[in-house]
Amino acid sequence: MITQVENPILEIHDLTVSYDQNPVLWNVDLSLPGGKLVGILGPNGAGKSTLIKAIMGLIAPTSGYVKVFDKPLNEVRSRISYVPQRESVDWNFPASVLDVVMMGTYGKLGLFRRPGKKEKDIALKSLEQVGMSGFVKRQISELSGGQQQRVFIARALAQEADLYLMDEPFAGVDMSTETAIFQLLQEMTAAGKTVIVVHHDIHSAMNFFDWLIMLNLHLVASGPKELVMNEELLRKTYGGKLNLLTRVTDMIRQKDFNPLKS
């Protein structure tokens, strides 16, 4: 169940990615429309992070190609923003929260130039958007896990990009913050930006995403949420892990179920 679109903002053509000659992603072929909040779902080891890294050019694909804004990656880097998984860096690094968020502005700044007032203002605004204004001067080694994650989201916001790729940005983030940031992402997509989020929580996935990609080494589905959020595709993605699936299908049946409204 793969919906292709005209004038895609991201086009992945027949992509196969391998680690040490072992392919972990097979023939992924999809295209995404602009201005959507896109979720990537799949079990652990499904290749979600690998897909994001391949889109960002951090892993060279075995075959296939990726085009962003109809151009090769290198020409549009400054329009793409990235939130890596939190464990990918050492949080003992001697930097303050503001220092890290300012890093988001370095791409546009270019070599040798120093960040100034403008960059600082962008960083402060991004911190405010994720509710971290009170922690500007704090060293990153003194943050909680969820706060670190929010710093990473703020850093991505500071990139002021058109396409955002976020690898599990809400891991360890509390419910109310998650909802607030999801609403922020919805505002951004309403303003024409595209946000792709790797996400593990099917509840909030149903509530917030416009478009869903389901992945399990192969591409299972890519399409508007209404079309792909069904029992058969979820079963294909998560492979008959039954109690999870019955719960989810229950949720799908109660059409306007919303865990946050209660």
Binding site: K53, N74, S78, F93
Partner: peptide
């Protein structure tokens, strides 16, 4: 500083 802290992120930005 950036490449010491987060090498992947800097490559993504084209640094």
């Amino acid at each position: 500083v950036l490449t010491s802290f987060d090498e992947n992120f800097s490559s993504v930005m084209g640094i």
